[in-house]
């Protein structure tokens, strides 16, 4: 299905342009009304503002919506979670308590996290927040996203959340061969399954937390 959508030019205008489009062009295209929508993560909040409004020479505005469901058993409004980085303490650290205090400083104060969100658009941690926690200068569209995330129960995952490294690279690199007709979708899936089983056996899959209610 995805390949058919690409063949119709629904992603980036055409398959070859999908390979060379830059975020700046897509944001600009959104503001001009040439691009209908784009799939992107919450990091967009820290990048998209300069392309809209008076300073960009237009009166366009942007907003966001959660992804539709691709499966009849899943309700619409899926919010995929990704892991963009992790804070950890080296087991050989000579001052683990002090290192933990630094991490607590970063992650333990929601006010500090949300002030950072208002100033830079960088995702706060932890993400469980309430309306009263947000500073007044945070963009209401950004605030709505984190409030919905805190209230939501319909989560999905990106390729780089729980896939082991080789499988993750395979997903986004080999799919280009599917899109250009060098690899069939069936062979692509079979190759991914083989690689994932190898990595699973080798214990390279990141730990997956149990779903709520499991």
């Amino acid at each position: 299905m995805l390949k058919a959508w690409f063949d119709k030019g629904w992603f980036g205008g055409s398959t070859d342009r999908y390979f060379t489009n830059k975020f700046a062009n897509v944001y600009g295209g959104l503001a001009k009304g040439e691009v209908a929508l784009m799939f992107n993560g919450s990091w967009t909040f820290s990048e998209i503002a300069p392309y809209f409004g008076k300073e960009a020479g237009n009166d366009a505005t942007w907003d966001w919506a959660p992804l539709p469901s691709m499966n009849s058993g899943v309700a619409a409004g899926v919010q995929p979670l990704s892991v963009g980085g992790a804070y950890s303490i080296n087991k050989d650290c000579r001052h683990p308590d002090q290192a933990a205090a630094v991490l607590d400083y970063f992650a333990g104060d929601p006010d500090r996290q949300l002030a950072s969100l208002a100033a830079t658009g960088v995702a706060p941690s932890p993400v469980k927040v309430a309306e009263k926690d947000f500073p007044a200068d945070v963009d209401p569209r950004v605030k709505r996203q984190y409030l919905q995330l805190s209230a939501g129960e319909n989560f999905g995952y990106t390729t780089w959340t729980f896939w082991p490294p080789k499988s993750d690279t395979y997903i986004y690199e080999q799919v280009e061969k599917v899109l250009t007709g060098q690899l069939s979708p069936q062979d692509y899936c079979a190759g991914l399954d083989k690689l994932f089983q190898e990595e699973l056996q080798a214990g390279k899959r990141p730990p997956v937390p149990a779903p709520r209610g499991a």
């Binding site: 390979f19 250009t180 390279k204």
Partner: peptide, 23 residues
């Protein structure tokens, strides 16, 4: 190295294996 590996050379393959595939 893209699209679809059409410009992949030993240097890009090495980089990808070292820093993306953790090999």
């Amino acid at each position: 190295g893209g699209p679809a590996g059409s410009t992949d050379v030993l240097g890009t393959l090495l980089y990808r294996n070292a820093f993306a595939n953790q090999q």
